[in-house]
Computed example of a mutant assay.
Amino acid sequence: MTTLTASPAQGNAPLAVSYKLLLSLYAIIPLCMILQLTDSYAFGGALLQFLPSSPSHFIIFQLLFGTPHILASGILITTNKEYFTFYQKKILFMTLALMLFFSIASQVLSYYVLYIMVASWTVYHVLKQQHGVGRGIYQLPGWAFYLLLWLSIGAGISVYMGIFLKNTLTVQQAEWVKQAAGGLIICLLLCTFWCQRYVKTRFGCLFMWSNSLLIITSFYFYAQQYYFLAILIPRLVHDATAYVFYVTHDVNKHAGHPQNFLYRWAAKIKLNVFIVLPLLSFALTFLLQRYGDQWVDALTQFFFGMEIRQAVTVGLIGYFSLMHYYTEAFTWKYGSPYRKYIRFKP
């Protein structure tokens, strides 16, 4: 999601995005800090022994975070005919580009190089969204905004690599990654203090610090080996922020006057417009994660006598994820048809 600044009501947009609501999502940071400190000092790390090394190891986490908001983004752009028509050339171009890239890259690049490339794009997407939303609030000079953004991205990538590649790194390599992350975190901390002078409001300052703490606390949990919490914090804030925009958009566009088949069906069964997109995206996530690979494997075995492993959970969902990173970079810009249905509370 690109930079989103406050704007007056556009078109039919009675429901406004609340910056206070967006800021409240960052409450996960102090809650996780309290949880970790309580576990460390009161329970001797009992929770740490229970938590997996990554949130993705919990099936419930996979069903709640990541994939649902990615599918919601895809549903939004494909079920509204005017949006798909408006962006179809870009979607086709990127689909062909991804097919060409991975068909070549899989032959010449190692799995770990591809993994690092995709992971880096993931971190960039997550943090660009949060800082993009915040930019209109703290209104930093351009150089200061991009300084904080890229320090956050650099530190975030280092933390991500340290967590998800820890079993493949040597002891020395793991230490280098941790030191690189730590150095970037110190720079981020100092620069956030420095940039305070350019923020005119207390609320803007609080939002800026919340975005910096998103990565600073992730590094802290990474260093303390609470890997689950290190990934949970940015993931939850990012996904929930995205849903705030998606649901606000759909309420403003479809409430009382459904404009696509999805919301016309929902109106017939009297399904509240607020829950249509979340309900559908979570249901699709469950079906794809739980049964997708089995269904595709059964079909390919029946028709072609061959087995295709993880065609859905890696192939299809991977494609949706990369397309999500790509399309979210422009679908919320000024001039986009999406923006007719988005406004902000001052």
Rank of each mutant, 00 (worst) to 15 (best):
W295D: 01
G305V: 04
Y334V: 12
R264A: 03
Y83C: 06
L37F: 15
S218I: 08
G162E: 06
G335H: 10
Y146S: 11
N272H: 11
Y87L: 03
F145L: 12
N12P: 00
P14E: 12
Y263P: 09
M306C: 05
Y220M: 15
I317M: 11
Y326M: 07
T192W: 07
H249W: 02
Y220K: 05
Y291P: 09
L189M: 13
A72K: 05
F164M: 06
G182W: 04
L299Q: 07
S110D: 15
I59D: 09
R290K: 13
S158Y: 04
Y115V: 05
Q259P: 06
A42D: 10
L288Y: 06
P68E: 07
T300H: 02
L4I: 12
F102G: 03
Q129A: 11
T300S: 02
F261N: 07
Y243A: 07
Q62A: 02
A240F: 05
A174I: 00
V171H: 03
K270T: 10
M161A: 06
V108A: 07
Q88I: 04
V276N: 08
S18V: 10
L47Q: 09
T5P: 00
P141Y: 08
L151D: 04
L25F: 15
W209A: 11
I137T: 15
L71N: 03
L23F: 15
L48N: 04
L188Y: 09
Q289N: 10
S210A: 15
A105F: 13
D293I: 04
W209V: 12
V133F: 15
L21P: 00
S73P: 02
A174L: 01
E175R: 11
F304T: 10
R309S: 12
F203T: 06
M99W: 14
A42Y: 14
A119Y: 03
C187I: 04
F219K: 06
T241P: 00
R309Q: 11
M94W: 13
Y83E: 10
P8G: 06
K268D: 08
M306L: 11
L149T: 09
I75F: 08
I157C: 15
T170C: 00
I91A: 02
L188G: 10
G44C: 08
Y227R: 01
G305A: 09
F320E: 00
E328D: 15
S158N: 12
